[in-house]
């Protein structure tokens, strides 16, 4: 049976989708095609044929994980692993060597047309691979955040924040969130923002915990926060 593999890399983050179904990969490719082309891409693409017999199964994983570093990859490690509808999705963090960055810079200057400054392209620039994963989780969720908020007892923005944190953890099965991530879902629905002071209040009351991950502050709902939702806010 054929195997299909799609890898998207940006900076030092790599998302890899491995599937036995070409339709899934084609669907993902179409999504990226639209975003890519709308940026007035002046692409540089290659088509190569290589002998798989040179790679063992483990060797292939290492090979694909290392390619964004142009053969210079060092100690990359898989940070998350999911099984979604029988397909594998790996997120691999890589350490890109200085030489790779130096090689990449001229390519960006010489080969790339001026970036389209339309709002949609700016949004695409800011999207990280994990954003696409979150979108996939949302699309597969049994209930939207909006409906989840309505169906529970939100009395103010703070309680909406706790309900949203519960939704992210228990409905979307995403263990940690950033303020940017939760606000991207929260603001369009409530027209309110969760700021640092609100997060600090929730942390002080023991409802959320924070952790510093590579300079990015991430939060997760604690058992106390879940209890607060179940006992006070659940509809």
């Amino acid at each position: 049976m054929a195997t299909y593999r799609l890898t998207i890399k940006r900076d030092n983050i790599s998302v890899q989708v491995v599937a036995k179904s070409g339709a899934l990969i084609a669907h993902e490719m179409d999504r990226y095609l639209e975003s890519f082309v709308n940026r007035k891409i002046n692409s540089k693409y290659t088509f190569a044929k290589k002998d798989v017999s040179q790679n063992t199964a483990a060797g292939q994983t290492a090979h694909y994980g290392a390619q964004s570093a142009a053969g210079e990859n060092t100690s990359g490690g898989t940070s998350e692993f999911y099984i979604h509808n029988g397909e594998q999705i790996n997120i691999t963090k890589e350490q890109v060597s200085t030489r790779t960055l130096e090689q990449a810079a001229p390519v960006q200057q010489q080969d790339i047309a001026p970036v389209n400054t339309a709002p949609d392209s700016r949004q695409y620039e800011q999207k990280q691979p994990e954003d696409y994963l979150h979108e996939q989780r949302e699309q597969g969720a049994p209930i939207s955040l909006k409906d989840f908020l309505v169906s529970n007892k939100a009395t103010d923005v703070f309680s909406e924040f706790i309900i949203s944190a519960y939704y992210i953890k228990r409905v979307l099965n995403i263990s940690h969130f950033t303020l940017k991530m939760i606000n991207s879902k929260f603001y369009p629905i409530t027209n309110a923002l969760i700021d640092l002071s609100m997060a600090e209040e929730a942390r002080t009351r023991g409802f959320i915990e924070s952790l510093d991950e590579d300079g990015v502050i991430k939060y997760t709902l604690t058992p106390a926060g879940e209890s607060y939702f179940i006992n006070q806010l659940r509809g």
Partner: peptide, 9 residues
């Protein structure tokens, strides 16, 4: 490849 983004199939 475009800038910092790379897609490989």
């Amino acid at each position: 490849k475009k800038g910092e983004i790379e897609i490989e199939l």
